[in-house]
Amino acid sequence: MIADGIPDMPRRRRTDGGQIAVALLAILLTAGVIHIVTILLVPRFATENGWSRLAAVAAPDGFALIGEGEHAVPGLDPLFVHGACRLDLSAAPAAISLSSSGGFWSMALYDPRGLIVFSLNDRTALEGQLDMLVVTPVQNAALKENPPPDIDRRIVVETNAERLIALLRIYAPADSGRDEATRILEHAECGPWAPPPAPEDQADGPT
């Protein structure tokens, strides 16, 4: 099949075997390259990754309740109430605050690749109160240089990703728990961090 018919007969038999071996090797090598390239490209071309599913429901200011039915995000625990908030660190650090009473909750920060940058659960919160700052390395340096007075009670998370989504999961197996969890979500704060006003920043402008 691979013979090209022109070379002289005695040599041809040897060349055939060699050609087939070379062809098989080439097939294997090419297949290997295609395999590796495919694996590496899948994340780039996947249209529906975890990030896009969350981004469709996340709010830029505060935690948006991830609904049930057609607004549901598949793969989330049905016994939990979920809220998603979009963080943009390009201009300012982001602050997340929430207070809960007793029940289990956990939170994870996802980057646009769908990877988890940071995660924690309610055990990390002090007496049910969580105050968190999400900063870029540059913002973190500025923060260390000029620490705000309340920095001690804040968890500072440094990340290279400027866009993140925070997903808050609150355990609420019963209907009554769902109302309470929804209330926690509504009262949770999530958005650009405004540093506590320093004296020289206080603008008492004319009205």
Binding site: A46, P74, A108, I116
Partner: peptide, 22 residues
Amino acid sequence: GDPYSRARLARTGEIPLGSGEG
């Protein structure tokens, strides 16, 4: 995670639990 895990994650679109969560 290795490239295979990332490819799988992108394909399934699941939202995994963080190590601090479960």
